[in-house]
Each structure stands twice: as structure tokens, then as C-alpha cells.
Amino acid sequence: MKKHVLFSLLILLLVLSVTACGSAQRSDTKAEKKEIPDLEAVMTLDEYPSCDGSPLALPMSEAVCCALTGAERSAVCNKIVHNGKESALNSLFGGKTDIVFVEGDDASLNTEAEKAGVKIELFPVAREYYAFYSKAELTDEEKSKLLSDDGLEAGSSENNISAQTASAIIEGGLKCSINYAKGYFISGYTPEGVVIYTVNGVAPDRDTIISEEYPYSFCYYAIIRADSPAGSSERAVAEALAGESGQKLLEETGYVRY
């Protein structure tokens, strides 16, 4: 009988160690994950570099300024002005602005800087993507047309387009009810009835955008002049944003990390 009892207790211990409401597993997982520290305030608002950029980069620009200066959002919002990508880059090249936050690709950004006779340093900080959507389900006629234009075989999966179709939509060559928009519009509350398309069978989500498996992603950059000295405020901002704490801040702000 004692053996029975011992045996039962052993089984009990085994079960408890395996299930244990998952809490042991969660704490182990937690132990494995290193806690990433928040960005700390290291300069005053007056010391913060002059900045500019595109409107879509405003949330990141404001967030990093709040974090690095400790200033309230209301004070930061009043100070930071983004005049658009082209204006911001011109301002950077002309020496009127210390740091800009814009979306694009490194090749074309470097080319523009070269034309202006300026060397720049690019810090990729976040990713954005194009989402392809239609405001409602396509009609049968639209689907047939898409199938024939797209070269997809009949019976291809619903709500998917090829990369070729996606390119055509962006270039404006394909007239159909599918449009494209910056990806952040489909996160949060999506309007009713909107259909989001996969591209080459890949859905846009955080993982597929970071891995670039989803083919229509691009980057946000923090850009400074290459001759910005070490220890300058603009270099400190760019490096902070590109680092782990900055990436954490960007994700909390709603961007996809680089």
C-alpha cells in the first residue's frame, strides 16, 4: 500500500510540474527574455537638435524627443515641425536642420544627397509597408478580370494577389477596385467590409515585414549629415532610435521595428 501511495504522489508531482497553470513556463520564458530598458532623458528640450521630416514620421519624432528630453508631449508637439520629405531633406542638406525622419530607400536618399553635394548618414529605424485592399468584396466580374490579367490559375485563393499585380496597382497600370495604402491604416480599427489582400500568399504582419517576406515594405530613416561630430545631439538621437531601447519605443509608438 505504501508503494501505491508513493507512486500516486510521484504521478501527482509529475502532473503538477508539467501543467502548473503554465506559470512555471511563463516565468522561465520571462527569465530568458532580457528586459530592455527605456530610453532615458539625456538632454533638455533646448538642447534637442532641430528636426524635420515627413508627416508619417511625426509620431516617432515626438516619441523620441519626449523620451530623450523628459518633456511633456504638449511642449514637444509645439516645438517639432515636419514640413514634408522633400522640404526636410533640402533643409538638412542646406544645414538648417540637424536631423530628419523620412521614409524611402537608401539608394535614392544617397543619390539626392550627392546631387546636393552633401554626405549623409542613414540610420534605418523602422519599417512601413503598403497594404493592398478593396473597400468591399470584388464582384465576380472583377475577380474574373483580375484572374485573367494576373495570370493566376482559376481557383486561386481568394483575397490574394501576385507581386506583379501589386506592382501594377502601385504604378497605376491596373484599373481595378484594389487600392494600396500605408500599412498603418489596417491596424487598429479597420473600417467595416474592407478586404485586405495577401501578396504572393504572404499576409502583411510584423514578422513578415521584418523578415521582408512580405514584398512591399520600406524603411524609415533617421538621417544626419555625415560630418555631425561624435557626441552631437543629432547623432545621439539617431543612435538612440536605432538601438534596442529606441526600437522598443518605436514599437510601442505603433511602428514595426527595423
Partner: peptide
């Protein structure tokens, strides 16, 4: 969505506002 410009933000011409995040 109909007012989205690919290179920019959601912009409503009649009111002067942009949506810059979700």
C-alpha cells in the same frame, strides 16, 4: 481609404487634417 495618397497620409481636403498614425 479613398482619400489616401500613396506618398503621403490620409488627407481630407475639406477639413485640413491628416491621419498620421492608426
Amino acid at each position: 481609404f479613398g482619400n489616401v495618397y500613396a506618398g503621403g497620409t490620409v488627407y481630407d481636403d475639406s477639413t485640413g487634417y491628416h491621419m498620421i498614425s492608426v
